[in-house]
Design a protein around this nucleic acid. Structure first.
Lengths: 127, 127
DNA sequence: CAGCTCCTACTAGATGTTTCGTAGAAGGTG
DNA sequence: CACCTTCTACGAAACATCTAGTAGGAGCTG
C-alpha cells in the first residue's frame, strides 16, 4: 500500500511503457505527444529507474526499459488520492463525475454496469 | 476544459477549502494532517492565489481564502488524466480498480449502481 | 503605554523537475 | 579504415516546489 506518485512527465513516459510494453528510448520518444530531445526522454527514464518504477535490460546497443509498477497499482494509488482529497472520500461523487463527461454513450454505460454486477458475484470476504 | 493541476501540498490545502469552505490560514493549518509552520501554509495559499485557484477577502485582521476552482472541475480534470494516462482511455478499467479496493460493501455498490442508473434516465443526447 | 499574540509580507535555502548539450562508445557503410 | 548514425553517460541550467525564518503591523491586556 505504498504511495506511488508520478510527476507529469514521468506519467507520460509510464503511459507509453504500459501501452507499448518494454521500449527503447527512441520508441518511447516516438510515442510521446510532445516532441522532446532524445536525452530528455533518457533522463526521465533514468529518474524513473532510480525511483524503482522501471528497470532495463540490454537489447543490442540500446537499453530496453520496462515498467516495474503495474497499471493497476498506479491506478489504485491515484484513485485513492483523488477520492480522499477531491471527492471527500465519496466514490459515488467520483463515479458521477466519471460518467458526467460528454462522449459516454449507452453502450459504455452498460459496460460500466457490468463491472459493478460482476463485482457483486465475485465479491465479499470468504466465509 | 483547461488543465487543472495541483501539486501534492496544494491538493492538501484545496481539500481543506472544499471541505470546510472559506478559511483563514490558521483554520487551514489546523485541518492539515501534517503539521507545518504557519508561514508555510500561507505560502501555499499565496501560490494557489497566484495561479488563480483561490481568492481571498479580508476578515478582520486576517485573510479568508476561498476556492475558485470547484471540486467537480478539479475532479473531472484529474479523472480525465488518469483515464488517459493510466487506464489507456478505459473507464471500465478505472471503475474496476475503484470497486476492487477493500472496504467497499454491498450498500455502497448499490449506491454506485444508482449513480449509473440515474445517469441513464437523465443522460444522452436528445432524440 | 509596554508587552504579548496573531497576522501578513518578504526572503531564502534545499530539493525536485524538466530540459537539453557535449563527450564519447558502438556498430554499420563506403 | 574513415565516416555516419545511434546510443549511453555526465553535467548543468532554468524553473517549480516545499519549507520556514525574520520583519513589522494591528489589536488586546495589564
Amino acid at each position: 500500500m505504498d504511495e506511488i506518485v508520478f510527476t507529469g512527465r514521468e506519467l507520460d513516459v509510464m503511459a507509453v511503457l504500459w501501452e507499448q510494453g518494454a521500449s527503447t528510448v527512441a520508441e518511447v520518444r516516438a510515442r510521446l505527444d510532445d516532441s522532446l530531445a532524445y536525452t530528455t526522454v533518457l533522463t526521465v527514464l533514468r529518474t524513473l529507474e532510480a525511483k524503482g518504477h522501471v528497470t532495463h535490460e540490454s537489447d543490442g546497443k540500446a537499453h530496453r526499459y520496462a515498467a516495474l509498477v503495474a497499471r493497476d497499482a498506479a491506478g489504485r494509488s491515484a484513485l485513492g488520492r483523488i477520492v480522499d482529497k477531491i471527492f471527500g472520500g465519496s466514490r459515488e461523487l467520483l463515479l458521477t463525475q466519471l460518467v458526467d463527461g460528454r462522449g459516454i454513450d449507452d453502450a459504455e454505460l452498460e459496460r460500466l454496469r457490468q463491472v459493478l454486477n460482476q463485482r457483486r458475484s465475485a465479491g465479499g470476504t470468504a466465509p
